[in-house]
């Protein structure tokens, strides 16, 4: 069973604020899912290479040439808060 501390640690890594009832619910549900996932340990995979992509592609390059991109107005069209041609956020440095 995942501890409350572990769940809060994971939530912090994922930048999710959890309500109190979510903390205990996720501890329970994630433990159940992870217990199920441990079935994989029945397989000996010591000499098996991992597959990250099923259809293998390597170093796909495109010509390094200038090309049109979004205009500032397009890029900012969905911005929750805009200031001039910038996304407005909280102050980051003191």
């Amino acid at each position: 069973m995942l501890t409350r501390e572990t769940v809060l640690h994971i939530a912090e890594l994922a930048k999710l604020e959890l309500a109190e009832h979510e903390t205990s619910l996720y501890a329970e549900q994630l433990s159940e899912i992870l217990a199920y996932a441990e079935r994989l340990n029945a397989l000996d995979t010591d000499h098996i290479a991992p597959t990250a992509q099923a259809i293998y592609r390597r170093n796909v390059m495109r010509p390094d040439e200038p090309r049109p991109s979004l205009s500032p107005d397009e890029a900012l069209a969905n911005a929750p808060q805009r200031q001039d041609d910038l996304f407005r956020v909280h102050q980051i440095l003191d």
Partner: peptide, 19 residues
């Protein structure tokens, strides 16, 4: 933002994947 914006299953999978 993420707590309010995401629903239960999405949060569950983000938590599972992060773990």
């Amino acid at each position: 933002t993420r707590a309010v914006g995401f629903g239960d299953e999405v949060k569950r999978r983000i938590m599972l994947g992060t773990y």
